[in-house]
């Protein structure tokens, strides 16, 4: 398994643990921890951080004609960098603390969509008949 796939799988497992822990916080007796925008953060930790990260890492390992790992490292940095930014910026913006949170959320959206576009571009030619 290439190092970049191992990094994806390990980070995906970290996101799974974090997403489940956020779910526990929200379900604590007495209404749970009241952080604004906690639910979208939890869902995206599980769906983007866990499921999509795991799929990207395993697909790079499994699909034929694996080239260089460098484009996948860029996907890794953009996907998890963008997700990390979202985890911080979304609750902060929803709390109405002011500051540059809206711009950071836009940056997070840009990073994550760039990561997934790059991944699709890398995987597309590798999905071919044998």
């Amino acid at each position: 398994m290439p190092p970049v796939s191992r990094a994806f799988v390990r980070t995906a497992l970290g996101c799974l643990a974090l997403g489940l822990a956020v779910g526990v916080l929200g379900a604590l007796p007495g209404g749970g921890v009241h952080l604004p925008a906690l639910e979208p953060v939890r869902v995206h930790l599980l769906v983007v951080g866990w499921l999509t990260g795991l799929v990207v890492g395993i697909a790079h390992w499994l699909f034929p004609a694996r080239g260089r790992d460098r484009p996948l490292w860029a996907v890794y940095a953009l996907l998890y960098g963008g997700l990390g930014l979202r985890i911080v910026a979304e609750p902060a913006r929803a709390a109405g603390t002011g500051g540059p949170w809206a711009a950071l959320l836009a940056l997070s959206a840009l990073a994550q969509s760039a990561a997934l576009l790059a991944f699709a571009a890398v995987l597309w030619p590798r999905a071919r008949g044998s």
Partner: peptide, 20 residues
């Protein structure tokens, strides 16, 4: 992969545009 690209672009718009 087509669904991934369309869904990701839509998600980016949903995340980035409303605060701005």
């Amino acid at each position: 992969l087509v669904c991934l690209v369309l869904g990701a672009l839509l998600g980016a718009a949903l995340l980035a545009v409303p605060p701005l």
